[in-house]
Simulated assay, not measured.
Amino acid sequence: MAELRSFFEDLGFTDVATYVQSGNVVFRAKKGDAASLKSEIEAAFERKWGFHSRIMVRDAGWFERLVQDNPYPEVAGEPTKLHAYALEREPTVEETKPLADKCTGPERFEIKGDVLYLHAPDGLGKSVFVNLIPRTLKVPGTARNWRSVLALLEMAGKAGG
């Protein structure tokens, strides 16, 4: 993670911090929107390490909305049972329907914009449904448990957005 932090600092970002061994980096950028920062970071990553890696960039406001829009507030106190998938884009209804058809319980999910919220009452380790999400939805994304979501939001606030 120190090397990743250094990579972001070398790109000119400030207040760079990483979160555990998750590949999450919180930073402050002087200019650029999420799309342009994503392109810049992906290109630099490929130059440095010689392979392409999908990068997602979200701002502090996005994390604030993610937490505010949680459709399962009653389980927010059980952070290993509530997960948020940051999706590259909002899925279409046609893309979401097959996933809904396969969600037969005990899990439940809801998609709001480019976030899939998943309540897995038995945890991800025992969930069969969780493995169906990327194969069925076909919209690239990355999942974080609720504890990680809240930690990243707090870090983003300290970085000033």
Rank of each mutant, 00 (worst) to 15 (best):
F7V: 03
E42C: 02
E95K: 05
P140G: 06
L152F: 06
K97T: 14
K81L: 09
G77W: 04
R54Y: 14
L132F: 04
Y85S: 12
P71I: 05
Q68I: 06
R28D: 10
L99K: 01
E64V: 04
E90H: 04
W146S: 06
K102W: 00
T18W: 10
A86H: 14
H52E: 15
S127R: 01
A76F: 02
S148L: 04
Y85A: 10
R147A: 13
G157T: 11
I55Y: 02
G157M: 11
A29W: 02
E110H: 00
A159I: 07
E3W: 13
A34M: 08
V16Y: 00
N70V: 02
P106V: 03
V67K: 03
L132V: 07
E9C: 09
F27S: 07
Y72I: 01
K138V: 09
R147H: 08
S39N: 14
A86K: 13
R108C: 01
R89G: 14
G160F: 13
E95P: 06
A17F: 04
K31D: 15
P71Y: 02
T80I: 13
T80P: 13
R54N: 15
L66F: 03
G61L: 11
A120H: 01
S127P: 03
R28Y: 09
F7T: 02
A76T: 08
K102C: 04
T80L: 11
Q21K: 08
G23K: 00
M155A: 15
T136L: 03
E42W: 00
M56H: 14
G50E: 06
E64L: 05
T18I: 11
R89E: 15
P106Q: 00
Q68Y: 07
G157S: 14
D15F: 13
P73T: 05
R58Q: 10
D101G: 04
L99I: 04
R108Y: 00
D101V: 05
G157C: 09
L153W: 09
P134S: 04
G141N: 04
A159L: 08
D59M: 10
K97D: 15
